[in-house]
């Protein structure tokens, strides 16, 4: 089997390097003098981390809350398309790894909500904003998972794109977010590997399995390219985020990196990427490729993807069905505390 680690490994090395840099910065200690904006600017310039207790511009805080919340919501909503196949996984081994993967995504959501909490916004508040439709999640999860092969395509392409997007975030200037991303990226690389193995097995299986795998790659390819967001010229938040060292590479740079990675792996998978214009460009040292349909991306973000309503309805129902349970937890804790007080009196 093709060694997916050769690719994933390069990215994992970057995660390790980011972790080492983070530790080194912590050991150096905050060398920036002054206070307020002066100190903030000095910390950013020196590649030091901003920590919750540090002064930060309100816009920096708001940008981070928006981005971390959207990321956390994506992990939680992202449980649904894959959760859709847990009960039908075609082998017990695959069932166990899929269950564990979806569980990891719940864990990622929790780390990220915790990172957002350090900026003074509670998880409940953010979940309410999501359910009210006032905060977004990654539009990729608004596409349906139609066959078992989608578990392979999501792992390879969607988790793969997530890693490419997230590895640079391990060096993000905000400490708690950078630390959460280091932890998450390590797990995401397992997910990508699992997805690759599912696709590889299908592609080298029966003709029906091969066809299922190709169909899944055909359906998920362009939506995965769209995960990197609009082209650089149209991206609204990029420049400021770069200056703050929240973002390190542009949407198009990351998209190119992802295309190159997939183009190198697809042959060994025994499948093809559904882009007749995909070819190596010697001059650029990168693959030329067809852009995804950004009008479709905007439609899906605006709410008209195939599964937007279903994903939100599912989340709202889970939240509503669990309300009586959460109320019971509060009531029981109060009773227990009262009983303790009464016993002490």
């Amino acid at each position: 089997m093709y060694d997916v680690d050769a690719q994933g490994g390069g990215l994992l090395d970057e995660v390790e390097a980011a972790e080492a840099a983070l530790r080194a910065a912590a050991e150096r200690g905050a060398q920036a003098g002054g206070a307020g904006r002066e100190r903030f600017d000095a910390l950013i310039a020196a590649d030091q981390k901003i920590e919750p207790r540090d002064w930060m511009p309100e816009a920096y805080r708001r940008t981070l809350v928006r981005q971390i919340a959207q990321h956390a919501h994506s992990e939680i909503i992202g449980m649904q398309p894959e959760g859709n196949w847990i009960t039908r996984a075609p082998s017990l081994k695959r069932k166990a790894s899929l269950l564990a993967k979806v569980q990891d995504e719940a864990g990622h959501g929790l780390y990220l909500y915790a990172a957002a909490e350090t900026l003074g916004v509670g998880r409940d508040e953010l979940v309410d904003l999501l359910l009210a439709g006032r905060q977004k999640y990654s539009s990729i999860f608004n596409y349906p998972t139609l066959t078992w092969a989608d578990m392979g395509a999501i792992g390879w392409l969607v988790d793969g794109a997530a890693i490419v997007n997230q590895v640079p975030l391990c060096r993000c200037s905000y400490g708690p977010y950078a630390r959460a991303m280091i932890r998450i990226c390590k797990e995401e690389s397992f997910h990508q590997r699992q997805g690759y193995e599912i696709l590889y097995t299908l592609a080298h299986g029966t003709p029906a399995q091969h066809q299922m795998a190709q169909d899944a790659v055909d359906r998920w390819w362009y939506p995965s390219l769209a995960m990197f967001g609009p082209p650089d010229g149209e991206s609204t938040h990029s420049a400021q985020s770069m200056a703050w060292k929240i973002k390190r590479f542009s949407n198009d740079e990351l998209r190119q990196r992802f295309v190159d990675m997939c183009a190198q792996q697809i042959g060994a998978l025994g499948l093809r990427i559904p882009d007749p214009d995909l070819r190596w460009n010697d001059e650029r040292g990168a693959y030329d490729y067809t852009q995804p349909d950004y009008a479709e991306l905007m439609r899906v973000i605006a709410g008209d993807g195939p599964c937007n309503r279903r994903r939100m309805a599912h989340r709202r129902r889970a939240q509503a069905d669990g309300a009586w349970v959460r109320e019971a937890v509060v009531a029981h804790a109060k009773k227990a505390a009262d009983a303790k007080k009464a016993a002490a009196a």
Binding site: I76, I86, A106, H314, G322
Partner: peptide
């Protein structure tokens, strides 16, 4: 999975 009363 994805339906529990709390994420934990």
């Amino acid at each position: 999975s994805s339906r529990a009363p709390e994420m934990e």
